[in-house]
Design a protein around this nucleic acid. Structure first.
Ligand SMILES: [Zn+2]
Ligand SMILES: [Zn+2]
Ligand SMILES: [Zn+2]
Ligand SMILES: [Zn+2]
Lengths: 165, 165
DNA sequence: ATATTAATGATATATTATAACATTACAAGT
DNA sequence: ACTTGTAATGTTATAATATATCATTAATAT
């Protein structure tokens, strides 16, 4: 296959082959370390997300899986995606009902994204902190934020009281 | 009908009748001011959201609409919800595919929510600013945040260049 | 009154996601 | 190697969420 050495990601160019390989190797190492099964299916889905470098819906991913002969029914894609999200290799963009490879794998972070309403490109902010201020990233990348929504999931005090775990 | 004078909202008690009436009157005034049609259907959907004071899915809302004789098909609910969201009377909680009445109507704000993963109660943070720090609100209300996601929608610089508007 | 626009009604269908159960691969202990 | 339990995948069916389209009615403006 042809080897493209650079590709536009976020708003910048980068060596995409290296980027993809690095991410896959990192996932491999992580799974190794934590005794997780980085199966061909899971690897392929992560590769798809890394290759595209933008948010893809489950059914778009499923189409690509079908082409490569790995699975063809919705649960196959959703299960692989669950695994990737659960272990921090990917995120779900709720607003788009779509999934994107994590730009900061192996790093503890609260994901924050900038999503273009025209082209649906998704850029993950590089701020590992939990206090959110996208303005710097937005300015740096030339992204014009129009509206923002923060959704925090957790447990309310009345639910904590009700049950042990 | 029976008049309940207080109801648990967020994590506190409040006079719910007053709360509901105030919000409806505010919406009425706003629509009046901006020549928007606050139709019986739209009013009813807002009332439903205010009454429940938690996130409701479109189909749950539709069931309640049906009971009151106002519309029974999905587009009816979705159109009313679009109107309410568009004009800031309600928000969509993407994570839940559900809708909630805005707690700060008529106030310019970037919505931020705390969502309990057990009971799905949704509390809108009272911070009108766009820099997000939920920790204060979380501590004050006894909510234990487990994970947070920020999604900013806007337009990337390459899309801005492509078109006039 | 009439034209224009906005809202609603109604039917059909698209899109996203999961439940349930069968089968296969893997890991661990014997 | 054999058994046993567990995890992953295959497969079918269906649930839940959302929109496209066109017909009808209501509101607004000229
Ligand atoms: Zn990430
Ligand atoms: Zn764009
Ligand atoms: Zn609000
Ligand atoms: Zn709760």
């Amino acid at each position: 296959m042809a080897s493209e050495t650079s590709k536009s990601v976020g708003f910048e160019q980068h060596d995409h082959d290296v980027c993809l390989e690095t991410a896959i190797k990192a996932a491999e190492a992580y799974c190794d370390r934590f005794k997780l099964q980085f199966t061909p299916l899971r690897r392929k889905v992560l590769e798809i997300l890394l290759e595209e470098h933008r948010a893809l819906g489950a059914y778009a991913i499923l189409d690509l899986l079908r082409e490569s002969g790995l699975g063809s029914q919705p649960p196959v894609a959703y299960r692989a995606l669950s695994f990737l999200v659960e272990h921090g290799f990917a995120h779900k963009i709720e607003r788009l009902n779509a999934f994107v490879a994590c730009a900061l794998p192996d790093t503890l972070h609260s994901p924050a994204f900038m999503i273009c309403r025209k082209c649906d490109i998704v850029v993950e902010a590089q701020s590992p902190s939990s206090s959110f201020d996208l303005s710097a990233t937005a300015i740096a990348t030339g992204f014009d934020i129009e509206q923002t929504i923060l959704e925090a999931e957790g447990i309310c005090h009345s639910c904590v009281e009700k049950v042990p775990a």
